[in-house]
Design a protein around this nucleic acid. Structure first.
Lengths: 338, 338
DNA sequence: CTGTTAGCGCGTTCAT
DNA sequence: ATGAACGCGCTAACAG
């Protein structure tokens, strides 16, 4: 319950001015070596740091970054929420002295970005936006604050905004190629809604591989990319649209796990009747039954890249946007039938 | 890219003093009805809120709550991280105007609570601590800041601190009872480390049910409660310690899912050779193979209770600590063999 | 190299 | 009912 000391208290105690202490804390020049040393020691002894509100008020920097994702209901599972992405980002940001304000927003909240307290009250210095299911309008609203914005697993097609994405296209290409090499000819791609960047890219990779082999594409656009949507749309597809399919590539693992379950419900077998490949390699993929063949992404490395980028942007807001593509890896388990 | 207006700017525009605006914003008396109305309208038109840093500096309140959990490595899955607890807490806190600073800390970081910038810099008004695997020493360090602390899924046995827990004991009792009623006599309890509150309680519920039926307890204490530890310790238990067991109750679903997998690896069948029951009913429980019988907890309701409590504490720090027990429900699926 | 001064944007007296 | 003045704790500009 110890009371916090202010820099001024310390200044009195050491018989220096607060400016001197401030200079030491912020690693600024203009302090004699001995004085600096004396201050540093005292700072450690009393475990003092400058008060963040006061510093913010003066510098207009908060030291907080918002990590934004889409709000999901209880049982509503998608991949982007089941990689431990938040913790990676959070701990990495912390290395640079930043804190993470987590926000999962519903559609209504994203409609009116301007009403968000976080924005009105200047509570953050930048935004990291997770996943493809965030409305472009909302992203633009954040961009218009003038603060740095970095997209993860998403990319704007009309506007240049910094983003970090998997190389979705080559990943899906690899998966499709793999199935083709194993003799599959009628392969379904279970996509998310049109316009979700990662889904579109993955679909394109899938199509490229098919065209290369002279095969015909079969695509179902789901309204979401969850276990539930995987179940629903797979059933619909195989029963009413593409009864001839022998393999499915899913736009993410959650969808694939739904398909695994639905195939069982339909009295069919994976991989004998239907081969299934997912995307993302979330932790549960290796524990599904049968274990899911999927495209692995290097989430921790990408988290670091994401943080690096926003830190750079924070230091130099004039930087021009770049997009970083990260390679993926096909992980062969049981669901593809090898 | 619109520049933010300060209250002073607004004051000039309306020909009133900043004090008046401040009073209106904070719902304080001492403003005439018409003036108040005029200010309220202007506030909405210009979408203005007081700057949070300045307010913090003045009031010593940040409007931020820390949500603390234990840091896990990539593939390291435990239940407490796979309920969407964070989003529930976050969105609920936001209803009260609070923001959530998420932190997942490693053991080393918890060793030295005093070194955390969050604390040194006064960045939060209170702490919500998620899960049983947080060192007591760290919890006490947070408590010593004088700020409100609420524990979720954990309880201190030596000290009174506000906490929200499942009724772990009755939950485990129900599960055990269920197995006994189906004829099992040799039932293993796969516990977390001694001293993890929820594990201890669940173990006690298990023991109570056994004693009631004159059965003998068989307990294995794992070093963690993940899928991996479930696999490892189940194998060890059935091969070297309790080869006679026909059923396992796991201290959480992650462990249970590990057991499901290990049983398969051992060439045995769930539930024919080994019945398995988990605890928590995380989203994946219904999708495991076979679907997991488990104890459902009402996570969203509990999230609200947790937030309510910390809000109360924020308003009135003198409140004496209470512990809230939330009921659970046995969800029968396939892994128990009914 | 160091101290003094001013002001960041608010909330809170104390006047009026 | 309203406004003026002050200060929260800090950083930056200016003096010396």
């Amino acid at each position: 319950m110890e009371e916090k000391m202010s820099l001024r208290d310390l200044a009195e105690k050491l018989n220096v001015s607060t400016s001197t202490i401030s200079r030491v804390i912020n690693d600024k020049p203009g302090v004699g070596d001995k004085t600096r040393q004396r201050v540093i020691e005292a700072l450690q002894i009393y475990n003092i740091t400058s008060n963040s509100s006061a510093r913010s008020l003066k510098t207009s920097k908060t030291g907080n970054i918002a990590l934004i994702s889409k709000r999901r209901e209880d049982k509503y599972i998608t991949s982007d929420h089941h990689h431990p992405f938040g913790p990676f980002i959070e701990s990495e940001l912390r290395k640079y002295g930043y804190h993470t304000i987590a926000m999962s927003l519903g559609d209504e909240e994203m409609e009116n970005a301007g009403k968000l307290l976080m924005i009105k009250e200047n509570r953050v210095d930048g935004f990291i936006i997770n996943g493809p299911s965030i409305p472009a309008k909302f992203i633009m609203a954040l961009k218009n604050t003038g603060l740095p914005v970095v997209l993860f697993g998403n990319q704007m097609t009309q506007v240049d905004i910094d983003s970090i994405v998997y190389h979705d296209r080559s990943g899906a290409y690899k998966a499709t190629k793999h199935l083709i090499e194993h003799g599959h000819k009628n392969i379904l791609f279970l996509s998310g809604p049109r316009g979700w960047y990662t889904c579109d890219e993955r679909k394109t990779g899938y199509t490229e591989a098919l065209i290369e082999s002279g095969l015909q594409e079969r695509i179902t656009y789901m309204t979401d990319t969850t276990i539930e949507s995987g179940k629903t749309f797979f059933k619909e597809s195989i029963e009413n649209v593409y009864p001839e399919i022998t393999a499915v590539i899913c736009t993410n693992d959650a969808t694939a796990i739904g398909v695994l379950d639905e195939v069982r419900c339909l009295g069919l077998k994976v991989p004998d009747d239907i081969a299934v490949i997912g995307f993302d390699d979330i932790p549960w993929a290796s524990l599904s039954y049968p274990p899911l063949t999927t495209i692995h992404v290097f989430i921790e490395e990408m988290g670091k890249i994401t943080v690096n980028r926003i830190i750079d942007l924070l230091k130099n807001p004039e930087l021009h946007p770049i997009t970083t593509f990260a390679a993926t890896e096909l992980v062969i388990r049981k669901s593809c039938g090898c």
